Amino acid sequence: MHRQFIADLQARDNVDEIYRVADKQVRSNRQGNDYLLLQLMDRTGQISGMRWNAGQSLYETFQKGDFLRVLGTTQLHNGMLQIIVQDFETVHPSKVTHEDFTKTNPGEVEQLLEELRERLGTVKNAHLKRVVQAYVNDEQLIDKLRRAPAGIKTHHAYEGGLLRHILDLLRIAEAIAPNYPQLDREMLLVGVFLHDLGKLDELSFDGDLSYSDSGQMLGHLVQGTIDLDRRATQIAKETGLPLPDPILWRLQHMILSHHGQLDHGSPKIPMTIEAIVLAHIDDLDAKVNAATELIESDRNTDSDWTAYSPIMGRKFFKPSANKATGS
């Protein structure tokens, strides 16, 4: 039977397919009746599912990260496709095809890792090189990086998304660096590599996509800074060559300031040239990725505009996702 991928669903389709639960909530309508709001996903995207007249008892029969066989009908609501769920049942992970639920196949992940190592391998500064090696030689960290998303909902929120985000930023950084001779290219590359690695501890991604307890309390900027300090201490212990304080501080500053503004979660605003570049290209990559996914998930063919996105604070012109043609 042909799989009903989320990206292929159209309004008024009858649905009988297995999807993974990215999120679930119990809500009440205006009449005070409970219903389930589900976020269902496969490798092609995410879609909301509404199960009316269902409360806490049904909510507790499955968990985020579980696979559900969903029966229902699709409909458009405010320009967004959703599934009105008539029934569902949990499906054991052994009964599903893993490749249907990840955007990045294992072979592609290994190619991305190889490119990551090649780009970081151009770092010649001895101190920065030892920092890079402390991370890339950590097999446990690399295994997490193979699987980690960069976000929960809108920012490369899929298996391998963090690796792709880091590599995209390394490519952008390499393209920018020649235009600014005052920029320390190697410092920028290493800062780009390190900036989001705290998400390996901030996020939980072995089942459902959620935040770990330490991630809720500290956040990945702080967690990444703490981890870098720990690795710098280990480097000094193993090699007898301490990381010079100015290098450590500049790398930690890039991690702490990469959200760019205090009200965006950075405890410090960027105060080095490399930190300024990192904050801007990080914001660029996240926003372009989020906008692209919003455009691709919008199913309202009667308009060239997406529905309003509360997260992004705007609508998007859908043809802008296609390359311009003509003279």
Rank of each mutant, 00 (worst) to 15 (best):
K129Y: 03
G55K: 04
R147I: 02
R51C: 13
S57N: 03
D87P: 08
L145F: 06
I152K: 09
P93Q: 10
E89Y: 11
E115D: 14
G107M: 11
V91N: 09
N137F: 04
T122D: 12
E99T: 07
G55Y: 12
Q75D: 14
K129R: 10
L116P: 09
G107C: 04
L81I: 03
T74Q: 04
N137L: 09
V109Y: 02
R147G: 12
L120Y: 00
T104H: 01
F88G: 05
Q56P: 02
V91E: 04
K153Y: 15
A150L: 02
K124A: 04
R117P: 03
F101Q: 08
D66R: 05
N137T: 12
E60C: 03
L58A: 10
H127A: 07
T97C: 00
E108P: 02
L128K: 02
L76K: 04
K95D: 15
V96T: 03
G121P: 09
D138W: 00
V136T: 09
I84R: 11
V70S: 04
H155D: 07
R69K: 08
T90V: 11
L141W: 08
E99H: 03
G49Y: 04
V91Y: 08
R69L: 08
R146I: 01
Q133T: 14
L68N: 08
E108H: 09
E89P: 02
Q133E: 15
L145E: 12
D66K: 00
S48Q: 14
L76W: 02
L128I: 06
H77T: 08
N125M: 04
G107A: 09
I84N: 15
H92V: 00
E114T: 09
Y59K: 11
E99V: 01
Y135H: 12
E115G: 01
Q86D: 15
H92K: 02
F88A: 11
L68C: 01
